[in-house]
Design a protein around this nucleic acid. Structure first.
Length: 487
RNA sequence: GGCGGGUUGGCGGAGAGGUUACGCAGCGGAUUGCAAAUCCGUGAAGACCGGUUCGAUUCCGGUACCCGCCUCCA
């Protein structure tokens, strides 16, 4: 299987050829841990999780190393600590825990390594020392700065020239800088701000150096793929390249750079002032299941801006429900298959291999559902990070009916946006409605049946009647309290 | 001001230089006490202007509009 990926560095789609097939290495910039991840933060998580899954499928699960860092030293964290009076470590530990909870809900696998910046301060200092020795950095006024002019290819990734950027005149000019574009590798810390002893005094690292140091420590001077959001392309990734390539001139650093486009909400940039700012937790609490969120994300290619809309979530939810309905069919209507034999199809693997065409992959999901090809469906869903077992349980919502053989069909669970469903209550109602209906068939007087149906609909319960019996399904607007009126 | 991306049917969203994307919604039919669900069928597109070509929605150029980054938000 040939994997092709769009390499930001060359602006082309290229055939992916790992440095070492037994150890494919990916590094992705992770979050600064001072608050809940918003839904924009989640996009690279889902995108690169999908890449991780594809690589594991193609090269073997043990042959892929995926590192994603936690930035746990940052002025935003310091500010949060100052506001709340809480210790920094409390804040970062808690935020990391939240991050894991929220990203787990989106079906993202934990990366192989999740290094915290504060655990690599020594490696950063070593790297900075090397850069000073080789003339790529200089100490000034308690700071250490990277000498941008010393790296000829600076700006190559983002397609900018140093001179153009200075002409744009938006750079911070500090008196201790040789050149306005030079950026901070190390800066002094005052009392009460986290800091470490260093050759340049008590201080803390600049933002960019951590990724260079951690990727070197975990993956070496050359690795396969570096990913992140497009907004990181400049300056963060540009600076990473400058640091790493100057510190390790014999390595290639990342061979492929991948950037996901930004996320919008209802057609607009997500921002607190517009009131369209959501964390992943917000969505989960509003009742959008993680699987729905993931499916919406997979619907748009990572290289294009993605719009988060409620409408898309509703559609994704509908698809997941259909899948759940199919997976829950019993042996009377569907041959039994052993999911252990489920594999993603070549079509799906090929779609993902073509620069992560998740949208195309989803069309195959629809196809397998339509064809009732359970093994292809289950295997392909799994590769996409949509767990069939969870879908089967979570999206069935509720279904009650009388099977052809006269036995009551099962079962269970809550649906999005609705409170826990009282199964017994629904079942009773289903039986009562079924009884009423059977007698109405005799008398041809359906008034009582219709009245009950209307009441159920008003409570947000879908009512389906067929030859086989009655099915009740609490939908998104389910309101248990309205069922009381039925007594 | 500099750099980059986008513009596809009612909506969402792909691939491919010439043949049906797909999903949702719509419409027609089957089924149904009614309805829902389901199944079958079906219409509908490629911002604008030029160029290359036997042929472009797909390649190239220009115009318009939208968006992002350049301000340690992915």
């Amino acid at each position: 299987m040939t994997i092709r990926l769009t390499n930001t560095k060359t602006r082309r789609k290229e055939v992916f050829e790992p440095i070492n097939r037994d150890r494919v290495q990916i590094y992705v910039c992770g979050p600064t841990v001072y608050d809940r991840a918003h839904i924009g933060n989640a996009r690279p998580v889902v995108v690169f999780d999908t890449l991780f899954r594809l690589m594991r499928h193609v090269y073997g699960a043990d042959s892929v190393v995926y590192a994603r860092n936690f930035t746990d030293v940052d002025d935003k964290i310091n500010a949060r600590a100052a506001e709340t009076g809480r210790p920094i470590r409390d804040i970062t530990d808690e935020t990391i825990r939240w991050y894991h909870e929220d990203m787990d809900a989106l079906g993202a696998l934990r990366p192989t390594h999740e290094p915290r910046a504060t655990e690599y301060i020594g490696a950063m200092i070593t790297m900075i020392e090397g850069l000073i020795e080789s003339g790529h950095a200089y100490a000034a006024a308690g700071h250490v700065l990277f000498r941008v002019r010393s790296y000829q290819d600076y700006g190559a990734l983002s397609g900018r020239s140093v001179d153009d950027m200075i002409a744009g005149a938006r750079v911070e000019v500090a008196p201790y800088k040789e050149d306005p574009m030079d950026f901070v590798l190390w800066k002094p810390s005052d009392e009460g701000v986290p800091g470490w002893d260093s050759p340049w005094g008590y201080g803390r690292p600049g933002w960019h150096i951590e990724c260079s140091a951690m990727s070197y420590e975990l993956l070496g001077e050359s690795f396969d793929i570096h990913g992140g959001g497009l907004d990181l392309q400049f300056p963060h990734h540009e600076n990473e390249i400058a640091q790493s390539c100057c510190a390790h001139p014999h390595g290639s650093f990342a061979r492929v750079w991948m950037h996901n486009e930004m996320l919008q909400v209802e057609g607009k940039k997500m921002s607190k002032s517009l009131g369209n700012f959501f964390t992943v937790r917000d969505l989960l609490e509003q009742g959008y299941p993680g699987e729905v969120i993931r499916m919406v994300y997979l619907g748009t290619h990572y290289g294009k801006p993605m719009d988060w809309t409620h409408e898309k979530a509703v559609q994704a939810e509908g698809t997941l429900r259909k899948i759940a309905l199919f997976l829950n069919e019993d042996m009377l209507t569907k041959p039994m298959v052993d999911w252990r034999y489920a594999r993603p199809t070549d079509d799906v693997v090929e779609a993902l291999s073509n620069d992560l065409n998740t949208s195309l992959a989803l069309t195959y999901i629809h196809k397998y559902l339509k064809e009732r090809n359970e093994l292809a469906l289950v295997g392909s869903l799994t590769l996409l990070g949509l767990n069939p077992e969870i879908i089967r349980e979570k999206f069935l919502s509720f279904s009650f009916g009388i099977a052809d053989n006269g036995f009551a069909k099962k079962t269970s669970l809550s649906s999005w946006g609705s409170s826990e469903v009282n199964l017994q209550r629904i079942e009773e109602l289903g039986i009562r409605l079924d009884t009423l209906r059977l007698s109405a068939m005799e008398t041809k007087d359906f008034s009582k049946v219709d009245a009950m149906k209307t009441a159920l609909l008003a409570a947000g319960v879908e009512v389906r009647m067929s030859k086989a019996g009655v099915e009740l399904m609490p939908g998104p607007g389910f309101d248990a309290s309205k069922l009381e009126a039925l007594d």
